[in-house]
Deep mutational scan, measured.
Amino acid sequence: KELVLALYDYQEKSPREVTMKKGDILTLLNSTNKDWWKVEVNGRQGFVPAAYVKKL
């Protein structure tokens, strides 16, 4: 599985998104969309802005 690092805090704005804190390590589930990547964090799956994370 591929991991990404949260570069910034992000507060979810819809049920399809997830909240993350700067420094969190997230599991990358899908990065086919250039703007929104699907990740898993704390057992929850959802989208975060691709610009807010970096592949490890």
Rank of each mutant, 00 (worst) to 15 (best):
G43T: 05
F47S: 04
E40S: 09
A6C: 12
K34Q: 14
T32Y: 10
S14G: 13
W36R: 03
L5D: 01
N42V: 08
G23R: 02
A6N: 01
P15R: 10
K38I: 15
Q11E: 15
K38D: 04
G43R: 05
L56Q: 06
D35Q: 11
Y10L: 01
R44P: 01
F47I: 07
K22T: 08
E12P: 14
V53I: 10
L3A: 07
K1L: 15
G23A: 03
T32C: 14
N33E: 13
D35N: 13
Y10M: 01
V53Q: 00
S14E: 09
S31V: 07
E2L: 12
G46T: 02
Y8G: 06
W37M: 05
V39K: 00
L7T: 05
R44H: 08
W36Y: 08
V18L: 15
K55E: 09
V48C: 05
L5G: 03
D35W: 14
D9Y: 04
Y10P: 01
K54R: 13
E40C: 10
Y8P: 00
L26V: 07
K21F: 11
V48K: 00
Q11G: 08
T27D: 07
S31F: 07
D35R: 12
A50K: 05
L7Q: 05
L5S: 05
A50Y: 02
L26A: 09
K38N: 07
Y8V: 11
E40Y: 06
E12T: 09
P49K: 03
Q11Y: 15
S14A: 08
E40P: 00
V18N: 04
P15L: 12
F47C: 11
K34C: 11
W37K: 01
V18Q: 03
S14K: 07
E40F: 06
K22L: 06
L5T: 08
E40L: 08
E12V: 06
W37N: 02
L7A: 05
E17R: 04
T27N: 10
T19G: 10
R44N: 07
V41H: 15
F47V: 08
K1F: 15
K54W: 08
V18D: 00
K13Q: 15
R16H: 13
Y52A: 14
K22M: 09
P15H: 13
E2Y: 11
L28D: 00
Q45L: 08
D24S: 08
K38R: 12
N33V: 05
I25T: 07
K13Y: 05
G46Q: 02
K21G: 05
L29Q: 04
G43I: 03
Y10T: 01
V39H: 00
E17N: 06
N42S: 10
V53E: 00
V18R: 02
Q45A: 12
Q11H: 14
V4P: 00
L56H: 06
V48W: 00
R16G: 13
L29E: 03
D35S: 12
E2M: 11
Q11R: 11
Q11K: 12
N33T: 07
D35K: 13
P15V: 09
L29P: 00
V18Y: 03
E17V: 05
M20I: 15
V39G: 00
V18I: 14
A50D: 02
P15S: 14
L29A: 03
V4M: 05
V53S: 01
I25L: 10
V39C: 06
L56M: 11
K38Y: 15
P49Q: 02
D9R: 03
W37E: 01
Y10W: 11
S31H: 11
V39Y: 00
L7G: 02
Y52S: 14
D35T: 13
T19P: 08
K55L: 15
F47R: 03
N33W: 07
G43D: 09
D35C: 10
R44T: 08
T19V: 03
A6I: 02
L3V: 11
R44Q: 09
G43Q: 06
E17G: 13
G23C: 08
Q11L: 13
K13E: 08
S31L: 05
L28T: 01
W37C: 04
E12W: 05
L7Y: 04
K1I: 15
N30K: 07
P15F: 10
L29M: 08
I25W: 06
L56V: 14
A50L: 02
Q11C: 10
T19S: 15
E2Q: 13
P15Y: 11
E17C: 07
N42L: 11
K21R: 13
G46D: 01
G46E: 02
G23E: 02
R16Q: 13
V4H: 03
M20G: 00
E2C: 13
M20H: 01
V18G: 02
K21I: 10
S31P: 06
V39P: 00
N33S: 11
R44V: 10
T19K: 05
A51N: 14
V48A: 04
L3H: 11
V18W: 05
R44C: 06
